[in-house]
């Protein structure tokens, strides 16, 4: 269980929003990560730009933990079940591309553009995510 942290959540969210705006304003593309990931591995158009974006996603946290806030300890707790990890990864990869977006593409860019389909997609994936967690918890599975 983690604690409710509205301030850091809001600050982080605003920074994510600024990245989305900066990327769109300069490149004219939407920062939907599942789309960038798909294009980076399957599409030669803008491949290096997409790979650089993904690289940035890793460099950002490294900079944060080592340079910006070296005293902050890394909070990271993940399941040790390979069954959950592999099944989860497959479903996230398949589902985001079938549904045309993930938390960033539908949840942030799509809702930010007031797209009806993105609002519906976001309500659906939050709902099935909550159902999944609730069902797992009935079986005593948490993380």
């Amino acid at each position: 269980m983690t604690d409710f942290t509205p301030y850091s959540a809001l600050v982080g969210g605003i920074i994510i929003g600024l990245s989305v705006v900066f990327y769109f304003f300069t490149t004219g593309r939407l920062a939907g990560i599942s789309g960038i990931f798909e294009n980076a591995i399957t599409n030669s158009v803008n491949r290096f730009s997409n790979l650089f974006f993904l690289l940035g996603l890793v460099v950002g946290p490294l900079l944060y933990y080592n340079v910006i806030a070296p005293k902050v300890s890394i909070a990271f707790n993940i399941t040790d079940s390979y069954t959950l990890i592999i099944l989860g990864g497959l479903l996230v990869g398949f589902g985001t591309r079938l549904g045309g977006g993930c938390t960033s593409g539908h949840g942030i860019c799509g809702i930010g553009r007031l797209s009806t389909s993105s609002i519906i997609a976001t309500v659906i994936f939050v709902t099935t995510g909550m159902l999944t967690v609730t069902i797992l918890q009935q079986f005593g599975i948490y993380l």
Binding site: F37, L87, L91, F94, G95, S104, H106, F125, T127, L143
Partner: peptide
């Protein structure tokens, strides 16, 4: 859209990862 978003949500709930955070 409906099936894709549903399956993504299930995967998200199994691990707690969506694409951005998983890469980061």
């Amino acid at each position: 859209l409906v099936i894709g978003a549903s399956l993504f949500g299930v995967g998200w709930g199994l691990v707690g990862f969506c694409p951005g955070p998983a890469i980061s």
